[in-house]
Design a protein around this nucleic acid. Structure first.
Lengths: 223, 223
DNA sequence: GCTGACCATGACCGGATTGTCATGAGCCTG
DNA sequence: CAGGCTCATGACAATCCGGTCATGGTCAGC
């Protein structure tokens, strides 16, 4: 995943990385990058620091909070201080622009070589505020306290959170979570959502995670 | 382990690294460094490229051949080509002199952070609380007392503990542990888990090691 | 061939979970 | 402002699920 706002740099690097055999996904902003990473985790992230909107450091910290995905920072600022703070924000390497594609490629390989074997063993977990969802161990914890969710509620949560901010109709959820194709109306989903909310929300009537979209269905994510 | 021939650079870096809490061993030549690494393996090697005698690249390759010890290259030559060949020789990072101690420190930390968890996984022996699993000798002991586990229970334990905290469905376990592809339901896995628990758990009804994930399967690891 | 350990299977039980329903609150629309 | 639709809430009984046990089969070692 390449997160870079400058179109010429972006396309140049994308081309070069593709040529070296990488399957490259690109994002223009930090928000966009984070969103995509939730949907499709990447093996490594190349992250520009100077981004519109969310700051590169912040993006780095959030990626790091969400999992062990390695990060190579890419920036025009080569101050010692910048390098140090970049690495301390959780980056695995820090490369100063202008960068030759060959060098970036070599550094990416060095990081991937190191990470490679371990990466698969580490569980993928997402963090949303004080809610942590670990898809490997199928555990959910809130503010550090582990929750034990019943199967259906857990499946519902996994399904919703996998597609962050996407709206699901009840019909869709009945099919994907319950594997039923139900004809007609059912309040089944409502009931499950409700039970889930009592466990993961602070104030179930003012949900922060599972939102109701009146007339359509439900959605995972903040307002 | 710091391998550097220039006395002033060597002492400067040694001081700075010590101050940051590292236990630094130094060597003046590549031969010397390699010899010492055999006697006392280091957590990481900082390696100057311009060495008398054995060439830095060669040293790097030999260290790499000997094990997964991470290497940070340190050199005055900052050509793109040098960087690329240094990384391809197996270095984890490549730093160009003159280097600020803080920057080197930050880069060392970044490499160690990444390597840390993997390095300890090298041994064939895992310890989980008072339970020790040795994959080499296929022995398991609890609180120092060796246990003799029947084949199936042992295989189950090895399989589950290999992917720490990962959830396995009964179906998956039947395939990976029993090498059956069973259609439909069977209490086989449950029964084996139960027998295993009576041996490795203090309180089988409150397991610390093999957890039930209701509706999904089993998992090795704490809640 | 005998013996004992180990393994697979099925039945059963208790408790957690779930789907349904009735009721009431909340929100748009006319 | 009232009506109607949508959703939240709480209760309840049927169901599902996993733990436990008893039984019989298989295998290795003696």
């Amino acid at each position: 995943m390449l997160i870079e706002d400058d179109p010429s740099v972006r396309e140049g690097l994308r081309l070069s990385l593709s040529r070296h055999g990488h399957d490259v996904d690109v994002a223009r902003t930090g928000e966009d990058g984070l969103k995509r990473l939730l949907e499709a985790p990447a093996d490594i992230v190349v992250l520009d620091l100077m981004l519109p909107g969310l700051d590169g450091f912040e993006v780095c910290r959030r990626i790091r909070a969400g999992g062990p995905t390695p990060i190579v920072m890419l920036t025009a600022r080569g101050d010692d201080l910048d390098v140090v703070s970049g690495l301390e924000a959780g980056a695995d390497d820090y490369v100063v622009k202008p960068v030759r594609p060959r060098v970036l490629e070599a550094r990416i390989r060095a990081v991937l070589r190191r990470v490679g074997p371990a990466a698969s063993a580490v569980t993928a977990q997402e963090t949303h505020g004080d809610l942590v969802i670990d898809r490997g161990s199928l555990t959910v914890s809130k503010a550090g306290i582990p929750l034990t969710l019943p199967p259906m509620e857990l499946r519902l949560l996994l399904e919703l959170s996998a597609a962050y901010s996407q709206v699901f109709s009840r019909q869709q959820l009945l099919e994907s979570v319950w594997e039923l194709d139900f004809l007609g109306d059912s309040r089944l989903v409502d009931a499950c959502v409700q039970r889930l909310r009592t466990k993961i929300e602070d104030v179930p009537s003012r949900p922060r995670y599972v939102q109701t979209v009146r007339g359509f269905g439900y959605r995972f994510g903040p307002l």
